[in-house]
Simulated assay, not measured.
Amino acid sequence: MDISGQTALITGATAGIGRAVALQLAREGAEALVHGRDAQRGHDVVAEIETAGGRGRFIEADLTDTAQVLRLAQEAGEIDILINNAGVYKFLPTSQMTDELFDLHMNLNTKVPYLLVRELAPGMAARGHGSIVNISTIAASVATKGAGMYGASKAALEQLTEIWAAEYADKGIRVNAVAPGPTRTLGTDAMDPATLKTIADTTALGRVAEPEEVAEAVVFLASDRASYITGEVLEVAGGRLSIG
């Protein structure tokens, strides 16, 4: 996908969608900077990349600590692609959402991408090219019971996606977002099958996505194949059910 030789930083890349994105970017020829908190899982992903003939490097950082976010940006160095994937979701009604959980959602889902773009986009601009893909959620645009704080923090990220696209368009940087629907993760694997089926039945396709299916869309937007696409939020959510 025309990303051979480029360097990509993927946050939250030791599991789920982030891992799938890192593996696919590496298969397409990019050097994948695998971020995570668990060093063993991070090194396992890098080993998988290298076994397949790709290039990868693990960077450990706790994104709840602003100083570590800034260190992550510094250690990443000159990158061509930034995938803001790391995030948190706690499904609770507003009456049970604590101040601490509010701050956690806004910090991880909104502030961290903001800091990384602030730190890394100027370098992309100086080199005249770059691509940023933010991972949002269908819950940012579809009211989802219990997901108010999660959806709100990602809706803010979608707004920033459009703003960054406008700010950096004349500097050779494209900024887009992918909004996945229900996707198979460690969390869904632990769910009761009946609950998972209920979630799957909310999509037109009637199933949850595999992480690799979401990664396809992310890597496409990150690549030069999407050279005339910026400021867009692409839903990868299995379609919506019709009324009636």
Rank of each mutant, 00 (worst) to 15 (best):
Y168L: 13
I135C: 06
T144A: 03
A215T: 08
V45E: 07
V218R: 05
I59A: 11
T202F: 00
L205S: 09
T110H: 11
S4G: 12
G18D: 06
V142I: 14
L72N: 04
Y89A: 15
A13F: 03
Y168R: 02
V218T: 07
P93I: 05
I135E: 06
I79T: 05
A215V: 09
R55Q: 14
G148H: 10
D224L: 08
Q6R: 15
A226D: 07
L101K: 01
V88I: 14
L82H: 01
L23Y: 14
L92G: 01
T161F: 01
G148V: 04
G187Y: 05
E232Y: 03
E235T: 10
S131H: 04
E162V: 15
Q96R: 14
R71A: 15
A177Q: 07
E119L: 00
V112C: 11
H129C: 06
F220V: 03
A26D: 09
V88E: 11
R71H: 12
E75K: 05
T195V: 11
R240G: 11
E216F: 13
A190Y: 00
T94Y: 12
T64S: 14
A67P: 03
G172N: 03
A177W: 01
I81G: 04
I138Y: 12
I138G: 06
T14R: 04
A156K: 07
A86S: 11
S153K: 07
G16M: 02
A86Y: 07
T161H: 05
A30Q: 02
T183W: 09
A179D: 07
L104R: 14
A215S: 10
E212F: 06
W164Q: 06
D103K: 09
A156G: 14
A143F: 01
T110L: 15
A217V: 10
L120S: 07
R37H: 01
N134V: 01
P193D: 00
G128R: 03
A155Y: 03
E119I: 04
Q96G: 11
L82I: 05
G172F: 11
S242M: 13
H129P: 00
A140T: 13
T183V: 12
T202S: 15
E75A: 12
V236A: 02
E48C: 08
A169C: 10
P122H: 02
A22Q: 05
D192A: 08
K111M: 12
L92W: 04
I59L: 15
V219C: 11
A76V: 01
H129V: 03
L63M: 14
L104A: 13
G16D: 08
M191A: 10
M97L: 15
E210L: 13
S141N: 15
L72M: 04
A76R: 05
E31T: 11
R19I: 00
G148T: 12
R225N: 12
E60I: 00
